[in-house]
Design a protein around this nucleic acid. Structure first.
Lengths: 351, 351
DNA sequence: ACGCATCTTGAGAGCGTTCTCAAGACTTGA
DNA sequence: TCAAGTCTTGAGAACGCTCTCAAGATGCGT
């Protein structure tokens, strides 16, 4: 019926150590002015009783809630999830976030929000009111969603925008998309490829443009034209199939494709297989994301590893460190790396 | 500096609607005795002001925290994650849980606990003290970890044990492992297979034994012996490689393998490929889990879909519905399904 | 030694909500 | 019409913590 063992409160500790609540609170929060002798005594009591402050009570009195909220798009996440496609952003955010949060005594909560319509304000607003998080982490494409950023700014909730380098409220972080695309493209050029196509993401994502820029720049570095070598997808498998077919139809001499997501890359892999093209012998493939699925395809794909977890981790740290005034103009950039597996090889007929 | 727009509290609503705090509280919580006219008035105020109760304050006063905690093994999760193997249990728990929680106004939090050593009590205890969750969900093998179940029982926190059918405190739920293994094995027998091996999970998992039982029972149904056809792994890729090799070495006439995890199945797939065996022509393969990675292997694997999300969802519902006294003797069983893809085919030389 | 600043400690209020309990309004039955 | 309920509403305490502020203890310069 009633709780068997009532939770240990600060009062119990105070009684046990023979001091006031306030002193215990100071010790717990690392307050500056406590005699070492008393501090040790209080610490011993805390240890003995197994006292851990109640998050709820801390939130009630102090200003902090020790909660960082990660926002994800509900529709997209649920679709990916129910169709067993993998929900990498959510996973990476959760795990990257949890680790860094717990290092600072914080917790991470994941919230799925319908960011499509004007439900945003209602849903995100409700989450914020209920949780009163100390910070919010936004991922593309929500990082640049005016409705969201303005809501957060209006409520004075510190937030990080991943995948955005635009000025404005919040802390901007990027994952070096331009550089990563440049790196991947350069690597292919180095392998002798000259006809290198790009299956990019949808245009409402800034990172789509950055990746296209990086690809174009690498080609330009070597005076290679990019005409007819660009297709847009929506990161999903089907769009990858369509894009790969169009690219291959239009460019019979194509020897390499860079896809802006693992799903699209795997789709391209299947299109190639259907057409009797061997990857990597006839066609090299590089994908973006490096989620678990590309490790087990045949062949395993060379991929740009999106450092989502690390970026989220950085975001969490910034949010915690800065507290209230969290706006920043300097973009934090976490570099992406190229993980070479077996879907890339020298261009056919190249040295 | 200070919050720009102070959060809307129940007091604001009370003022706006011209009633007492208590009445607003009653309306919010669906209390029984409020005049319809007043209720509507209060609701209108809530709507207009965009009031959402503070979780922290609710927890402070009422008995509930509206938080369900999902426990996962830190070490295992982090290993799977940092090596990009996929963290399916965490994903499924999170998403299955979030959906059902939010349907009831609850939230789900994921906690990584070092369940290896005696850190359990410390870490889990701390999480419980800090969060004071209304319920905890345990997954294998922690569902049967005495240290954990006793800690939860002692603190009178309702909890669900997924993958456990043993008596004891908490709500037991299983995913029909015996039946699923029986189903998979029967299907292979139906396809003409007679030499069907099993790569099972480690013995500290009850579900390992259940799956073995189901496999044996199906073989027994048809008078087929199982000698020399069982290997144990640890669910990981490397263990799958070892097991598949041993099995194939020992049984040259093997035509089918059931693996107790996707990782082990993919390992078996590679072992087969190395030995020049075509899957499914020479060797059929069925895995357990049905995580995203098996959809994109070559060939895509036939798999038992572990209904983790649905099971977690059921667990959440039970936890919420039962409240305080959550012990149950009747095991809730969520059935697993067989998803046929391209790694299964009639046995070589069969009709 | 004295006055003043600084360090250390504690008392009391307040955070937003729900709980308990009491008071008033409204029924119902005779 | 009156007594005895039942509904409806509100007042005040309580939850566990941190904040503000004040008081006592200690240290410093002269």
């Amino acid at each position: 019926m009633a709780r068997v063992r009532k939770a240990v409160t600060i009062k119990d500790v105070a009684g046990d150590a023979g001091v006031s609540l306030q002193t215990v609170s100071r010790v717990v929060n690392g307050g500056p002015n406590v005699r070492p002798q008393l501090r040790d005594k209080v610490r011993a009591s805390i240890e003995r009783l197994g006292y851990v402050p109640s998050l709820a009570a801390q939130r009630m009195s102090g200003s902090r809630s020790y909660i960082i909220l990660a926002i994800n798009d509900r529709e997209r996440t649920l679709a990916d999830w129910s169709e067993r496609r993998g929900t990498d952003w959510v996973d990476q955010m959760l795990l990257g976030g949890i680790l860094t949060c717990s290092k600072h005594g914080y917790r991470m909560m994941v919230e799925l929000v319908d960011t499509h319509s004007d439900h945003v304000e209602r849903e995100l607003g409700a989450a914020i009111s209920a949780l009163q998080p100390d910070g919010v982490i936004l991922t593309p494409p929500h990082s640049e969603n005016r409705l969201i950023t303005e809501l957060l700014a209006a409520r004075a909730i510190p937030f990080a925008r991943i995948g955005s380098n635009a000025p404005g409220p919040g802390i901007p972080l990027t994952m070096g998309d331009e550089g990563a695309a440049h790196l991947a493209t350069s690597r292919l050029i180095e392998l002798g490829h000259r006809r290198i196509a790009m299956i990019a993401g949808p245009s409402q994502y800034s990172l789509s443009a950055w990746r296209i820029d990086g690809w174009r720049r690498a080609l330009g570095d070597h005076g290679i034209p990019s005409d007819g070598l660009l297709e847009l997808g929506d990161f999903g498998y089907e769009s990858g199939t369509r894009a790969a077919r169009a690219l291959l139809d239009r460019n019979p001499d194509l020897t390499a494709i860079i896809a802006s997501s693992d799903q699209m890359a795997l789709a391209a892999l299947e299109v190639a297989r259907d057409r009797g093209l061997n990857v990597p012998r006839d066609l090299s493939l590089i994908s973006f994301d490096n989620t678990p699925i590309v490790r087990f395809s045949q062949p395993p794909l060379t991929a740009i590893d999106q450092p989502i977890a690390e970026t989220v981790s950085r975001a969490v740290e910034q949010l915690i460190a800065r507290g209230e005034d969290s706006d920043s103009d300097t973009v934090i950039e976490v570099a992406a790396a190229l993980v070479e597996r077996s879907s890339t090889a020298p261009a056919p007929g190249a040295a």
